Amino acid sequence: MMEKLKLYIHQLFGAELTLAPFDGGGLPYLLQGSYDFQLATLNNLQFILMFDRGKTALTPASIAKHSELVAGYAKLPAVYTATSLISYNRGRLLKRHVPFIVPDRQLYLPFLHAAFTEISSAAPKEFSGLGNTAQLLILGQLNRKFPEPLSIAMAQEFSGYSRISVIRAFDELEFFHLAQRSGASRRLSFLPSGKKLWQNALPLLKNPCRRVVGLEKLPEALSPCVAGVNALARRTLLAESKRREYAVHASEFNRLGYIPVVPKRFAPILLQLWLYSPKLITSDGVDSFSLYLTLKDELDERIQIALDELMNAVLW
């Protein structure tokens, strides 16, 4: 099975999967008897593969619990792996957001922003995490920007994206069991909402900031939102930075043509160029969820404490 798995991963990612035995001696005996554990490395990222030995029938609920125990023990993502698994149970694992691999059938690795599923006998359909439109719809729901169920036309009006982009976003949200369509109109309703939606979607959400440029002054034609540390400081006890930081849609900045930039470490102003306009969600600054996504990987402990304060203040 391991060679079949390696071939499957190489076909999907174009990269080699390396495996090494993992000592699960500190795990409960039930898990040691049910699985073979391997430390997997793919594109310099490590995770634990839980190979189902097939000795006992495992329910999706028990697999989810076992995966949680192994991840806590190893301090790495744990991925259930089996030679076969009926589609119904694969769907239940997806609903529980449990990473799994069934070679040549389906793969769900949210920590790698990757999901593949078989389409009849053709090549698997690929979702590289959530696209920009799907992410924007999630943020719109979290910020209560539209009623549900959501029609394609309503989603277009909110996001500004094309009908094709919205339909693909609906497909992605359904695939990851974050929403579902119903009725003849095929309108979309988010399955969990509020805090649960945020928790389920977070591994698939990306930083909206494409890049940051340093400026001596803001161009008059721009109408940016306060962003970064200063936006966080205005909502928490964090001290403001002397350097100003703003965010705009990347296309808004690009339309200005040539704008002189300066090295970021010397710049008095930092301008974040986003995948979407921050003003689509709020008109008076960056919304809390997008702000969290731009700062969640910062190593400064003060910022992490302030982010916790920010999210604790959200009225779910």
Rank of each mutant, 00 (worst) to 15 (best):
M2S: 02
E3H: 07
L5Q: 03
K6L: 02
G14R: 11
A15M: 10
E16D: 14
L17Y: 04
T18I: 11
T18F: 01
P21Y: 10
F22T: 08
D23C: 09
G25Q: 04
L27Y: 02
P28E: 05
L30D: 03
Q32K: 15
Q32E: 07
Q32S: 03
G33P: 00
S34P: 00
F37V: 09
L39F: 01
A40D: 00
N43K: 14
I48P: 00
T56P: 00
H66P: 00
V70Q: 03
A71Q: 07
P77K: 11
A78E: 03
Y80I: 13
S84T: 15
S84Q: 14
S87D: 07
S87M: 06
S87F: 06
N89Y: 15
L93H: 09
K95S: 12
F100D: 02
F100N: 05
I101Q: 05
I101T: 12
V102H: 06
V102P: 00
D104Y: 15
D104W: 14
Y108D: 09
P110C: 10
F111K: 09
I119S: 05
S120Y: 05
S120V: 12
F127S: 04
Q135D: 03
L136R: 08
L137R: 02
I138G: 01
I138S: 04
L139D: 02
L139F: 11
Q141D: 12
Q141W: 03
N143I: 11
N143E: 14
R144E: 05
K145T: 06
K145I: 07
P147I: 12
L150E: 01
E157T: 15
S159G: 04
R163A: 07
I164L: 12
V166K: 03
F170S: 03
F170N: 01
L173G: 01
L173E: 01
F176V: 05
L178T: 06
A179R: 01
A179C: 06
R181N: 04
S182K: 11
S185W: 03
S189V: 08
F190A: 02
P192K: 12
P192L: 12
S193I: 12
W198H: 07
N200S: 12
L202T: 14
P203D: 11
L205R: 08
K206Q: 13
R210S: 10
V213Q: 03
C225N: 05
V226E: 15
V226R: 10
G228V: 14
N230S: 09
N230C: 09
L232Q: 08
R234P: 00
R234Q: 15
R234S: 15
T236D: 11
L237Q: 09
L238I: 12
E240D: 07
K242P: 00
V248Q: 02
V248I: 14
S251M: 07
E252L: 11
E252R: 13
R255K: 13
Y258W: 06
I259S: 01
P263R: 06
R265M: 06
F266P: 00
F266R: 14
Q272E: 12
L273S: 10
L280D: 02
I281R: 04
G285L: 08
F289M: 06
L291K: 08
Y292M: 09
L293Q: 08
T294H: 04
D297I: 07
D300E: 13
Q304G: 02
L307G: 04
D308K: 13
D308I: 10
D308W: 03
E309I: 05
E309T: 06
N312T: 09
A313W: 03
